[in-house]
Design a protein around this nucleic acid. Structure first.
Lengths: 107, 107
DNA sequence: TGATTTGTTAAGCATTTGCTTGAGTATAAC
DNA sequence: GTTATACTCAAGCAAATGCTTAACAAATCA
């Protein structure tokens, strides 16, 4: 998912979709590239699980998968929490050392 | 930042750093690649603003930049909020249409 | 029916990415 | 002072990425 969101075009597509469902052409309209390229980006987004789409007639309607966004959000939140937890207990890592060396409790 | 987090190795580095500061060799230890490669990943992370590092003596100490993580988090939260806001007011987009066509209020 | 709209698929191509190796430099340890 | 440590920097290279064009298929429209 992070990799999918790593591309600015795909982020623009997700932004558009966060405001509501859209067809492939809708997604392509503001983008300065071929429809084909947009379809390829869409495939990446779908493969990542961030976007889902279904086709009725000749138009494919795409929409965001909020649960997937939540997963990404969760990853970030956890890393940040892990870091902040550290700062809240100034014990232990006062020496702020590396790791491997000094595993023994003496010295 | 999304692009930086798009690589699994770099995500592992961020995970490690979320548990506390580490030297370049610390970061490299669990990774199956050359130190040089790790340094290159580190450069990407620093360029993105997600990680900061400073060198004292011959060891470079790296740490996470929580504000940057917060920025990423914010982006996700906003997209998700934008989507959920939509669902809360079932007005308007009942037809769930595309966009450009039918701008006129008749029909 | 024939033309148009909407999308799909494949091939090809330039650029970017994620490494490696090898040859340094500066600090710290012995 | 020699040796090990902890990086640093520059090539070089294979694979992945982000496009393009072109040919095609299926709905829908006139």
């Amino acid at each position: 998912m992070f990799q999918a969101l790593g591309d600015p075009t795909r982020r623009a597509m997700v932004e558009r979709l966060s405001r509501g469902p859209a067809s492939v052409s809708d997604l392509a309209r503001p983008l300065a590239m071929s429809l084909s390229a947009v379809v390829q980006h869409l495939q990446v987004l779908e493969a990542s699980g961030l976007v889902r789409s279904e086709k009725q007639g000749r138009v494919r309607t795409c929409r965001i998968e909020p649960a997937a966004l939540k997963t990404v959000e969760q990853w970030i939140v956890e890393r940040r929490a892990s870091w902040e937890r550290r700062l809240d207990r100034p014990a232990d890592h006062l020496a702020e050392e590396s790791e491997a060396p000094d595993k023994r409790r003496k010295r």
